[in-house]
Design a protein around this nucleic acid. Sequence first.
RNA 1: GGGGGCAUCGCAUAGCGGCAAUUGCGGGGGACUGUAAAUCCCCUCCUUCGGGUUCAAAGGUUCGAGUCCUUUUGCCCCCA
Length: 379
Amino acid sequence: MPELTFDLQHTDTATRARVGEITTSHGVIQTPIFMPVGTVATVKAVHQRELVTDVKAQIILGNTYHLYLRPGLDILRAAGGLHGFNGWTRPILTDSGGYQVFSLANTRKITEDGCTFRSHLDGSKHHFTPENVMDTQRVIGADIVMAFDECPPWPCTEKYATDSLALTERWLGRCIKRFDETEPLYGHYQSLFPIVQGSTDPTLRRRAAEHIASLGRAGNAIGGLSVGEPAEAMYDMTELVCEILPTAKPRYLMGVGTPANILESIARGVDMFDCVLPTRNARHGILYTTQGVMNITNAKWKADFAPLDAELGGYASTFYSKSYVRHLFHSQELLGPQIASIHNLTFYLWLVGEARRRILDGTFKGWKDEMVVKLMQRL
RNA sequence: GGGGGCAUCGCAUAGCGGCAAUUGCGGGGGACUGUAAAUCCCCUCCUUCGGGUUCAAAGGUUCGAGUCCUUUUGCCCCCA
């Protein structure tokens, strides 16, 4: 069965940053890349057309747990998978529900076999196993599907981290077996990414990364970070794991992060990112700009008629003033979150695109060091 | 002209003898990292954090009054 391919085109000399191209059945992804999160078949508050024309998203996410609950597999199958359902014709990646094992800790129970969830929608019981999660992701039909893992909380005991990793690895074996025994349903190919866990324990992480490197999958992921640990721990784990994972395969750091997190992780050899921050924070009035972070609801923007971010460019960021967008938020007008979401995603895609250009022309390190300071500034 | 009702922190409200005083809105600020999040949290009389001054105004009853009584002021309703 064919899988996605990764063409590593350039590696930075001053850092471990890389430039490459992932080719999938639904098109090419230029790395490093940020993937907007579209949990329930929509990147919240943003049209698919805007994702293409304004944001310039190359790939978006979906979530197995959420899509399984609603609209449900019958509808997704009948629609021809998620691509057919939401009309997104470019690549899609689905998370397996592993993150929900973490985030819905109050309403689920983990066993050797899998994880039983209480639906957050109606309280009904649902049992997820590595096997049925692979089957479900066949039905959803994303180009990249994630292994079903447990994302341990932070902090956790050494024993918890060890046992959790062992379970994740047993589950991974079952994911791979089932995935490799089954076929895509819609005529395009799919690739399964395994996920390195191991909390913030270097020994566990190293062992996990070596195991996953040995599997030879089309791409590999780093999970279980950005769950509350200090940024330094996240960077250390990322660096350690990237040194072990194969160079010739894309590396995906799950759930990360802030603009600074992304640049620092690119510098350590990560190729792919996703995070809810640009969209969730957009809906809460937090805007990431080329000058720093701004809370557009703050009183100080009341009469500031300058664009959101003149330097960034793009329609949403240059056409609308801070004053106007603040007004929209204070009026609870839906256009506020829409503009903010498009703006933030445009910024995130600009950020990784600029990183790519800088890596290629050899100016990445200096630029990155400058930007991580600048981008965290509160305006 | 006669009768009745109501005045509480920007607005709207709770309050029925022990109250710096309820709740909502409005206002100010914060959090959010593989989305149970258009959500959640904090502040919103003054303060040198000890306390001080409050419920239209003034008087009174009471150990104690936003709450009861009297007068005044303002607003609302009904009948002429």
